[in-house]
């Protein structure tokens, strides 16, 4: 009951932020940045479930984003599917792929799990890069329009592309956060956190560890896939970079930067790491340098991530 009220309070704050933020936008361009933040945050929320709840790392989740993105690019072209349905198809494929590879991969731990997932991600991006006939290779391919904007216009609602995607991505993030918070305070969520704490104790209370890990893996894969689809749809164009190693690393870094233990930590991390390069566009060459330094410094000085560390500081002052 308490937990339920807290959940709605948190979601309310997030919704208010999404609605009110545009009041402070200096230009229409910021709708694009906002939409990008929400999309990244969505995939990071998925990783919070995998890493933060269940304690399993993945360095290959961009592979699922790639499946989602290319499903939206390919399915309308080859199967005549509506882009919206293509997104669902992508999520389905990602879920099935995660189910199939998750079973053997999740038996591994620590570094081995990290490298196995990384291997999956790289194979995925290799396929997307090499199958030129289908994917256009490294140059990428264009993505059909969702048609939502035209539909809204007929209803008399004139929105710019940026505004519309800001709204769509914001709603997707709210739904994603709601589902993740539901899971946190549910039997499955407790089972995931329990196996994170002690696999042996979790199994002796009847938790099927392999099954719970697999659930977390599949759920997070679907999050990444939908985020990949949204990214493809709003850009109208997609390249294999979406499935690349660097994208996987960025996702994990966002999750860990904000605080992988909480949904809102993940969202904060996504916001910072998405916005930072926008600030640094003048110094584009410094982007990698800064990203690398941020990763190291946060892990050394704020190992729990920003949000819990800030929370603790405030808590201490309150005492």
């Amino acid at each position: 009951m308490m937990a339920g009220r807290r959940k709605w309070l948190q979601l309310g704050v997030l919704a208010a932020l999404i609605v009110l933020l545009p009041l402070f936008f200096p230009s229409g361009y910021y709708y694009r940045v906002g939409a990008l933040i929400f999309v990244n945050a969505l995939s990071v929320v998925g990783l919070v479930i995998l890493i933060g709840y269940a304690g399993q790392i993945s360095l290959g989740h961009a592979g699922f984003a790639g499946i989602g993105a290319y499903a939206c690019a390919l399915a309308p072209q080859h199967l005549g599917l509506h882009p919206g349905l293509a997104m669902l198809l992508g999520a389905l494929i990602s879920g099935v792929v995660a189910l199939l590879i998750g079973r053997p991969i999740l038996r591994l731990k620590g570094y081995y799990l990290a490298v196995a997932t990384l291997g999956f991600g790289i194979l995925m991006s290799m396929v997307l890069t090499n199958e030129r006939a289908l994917t256009g290779g490294p140059d990428g391919m264009s993505v059909e329009d969702l048609g939502l904007r035209a539909m809204l216009r007929e209803l008399g609602w004139r929105l710019s592309g940026g505004e519309m995607w800001y709204g769509v991505s914001g709603i997707a993030l709210l739904i994603g956060a709601w589902v993740a918070l539901n899971l946190l305070d549910s039997p499955s969520g407790r089972a995931m956190r329990a196996l994170h704490g002690s696999e042996i104790a979790a199994s002796t209370v009847g938790i099927d560890i392999a099954r719970q890990k697999l659930r977390a893996f599949v759920i997070s894969a679907v999050y990444a896939s939908i985020a990949g689809s949204l990214l493809a749809l709003q850009n109208g164009f997609i390249t294999p970079d979406v499935a690349g190693f660097m994208h996987s690393i960025e996702m994990v870094t966002m999750a860990v930067l904000g605080g992988v233990g909480s949904v809102f930590g993940g969202i904060l991390g996504a916001a910072i790491l998405t916005f930072l390069p926008q600030l640094l566009t003048v110094f584009a060459e410094y982007e990698q340098l800064v990203l690398g330094a941020v990763m190291i410094l946060v892990m050394i000085f704020l190992p729990q991530g920003l949000l819990p560390s800030i929370g603790r500081r405030i808590g201490r002052k309150g005492e």
Binding site: P187, S188, R190, A191, R193, A194, H196, G197, S198, I200, A201, A202, T204, V205, G206, I207, G261
Partner: peptide
């Protein structure tokens, strides 16, 4: 073998996994 990061109540609730799962 305690779930250190979870609350005391959640620790016992984990023991209810078989009864509360769905």
């Amino acid at each position: 073998q305690i779930f250190q990061e979870m609350t005391v109540l959640d620790n016992v609730l984990a023991g209810y996994h078989l009864q509360e799962r769905g």
